[in-house]
């Protein structure tokens, strides 16, 4: 079971790296923020899988922190660049 869960986590990291193409290519800043948002979700998934695979419940706290704070960047982006002057 551990090997299976770590394999799923590995595949998730691989598709994160594939999704990097959208982040690099753009074309708009909103696209880049969307890619970063997807990376945040993938990161939470990987941390959950690693927590279960190595039975380290403390990694769930890291996933919780990530889930809470990953949208902060997006909120800052919307708040800062969406403000009409």
């Amino acid at each position: 079971m551990t090997i299976y869960l770590v394999s799923v986590a590995t595949l998730l990291v691989v598709i994160l790296l594939v999704g990097l193409a959208r982040l690099i290519r753009g074309p708009s800043n909103a696209d880049r923020m969307l890619a970063a948002q997807l990376f945040g979700t993938v990161g939470v998934g990987v941390l959950l899988l690693l927590a279960e695979a190595y039975s380290q419940a403390a990694l769930l706290d890291a996933a919780l922190t990530l889930a809470l704070l990953a949208p902060m960047t997006l909120l800052a982006f919307i708040r800062l660049s969406g403000a009409r002057q």
């Binding site: 990161g43 990530l66 809470l68 704070l69 990953a70 902060m72 960047t73």
Partner: peptide
């Protein structure tokens, strides 16, 4: 996770 993904980005 708190510093790298949250605070620094903002």
């Amino acid at each position: 996770a708190a510093i790298g993904a949250g605070i620094t980005g903002a």
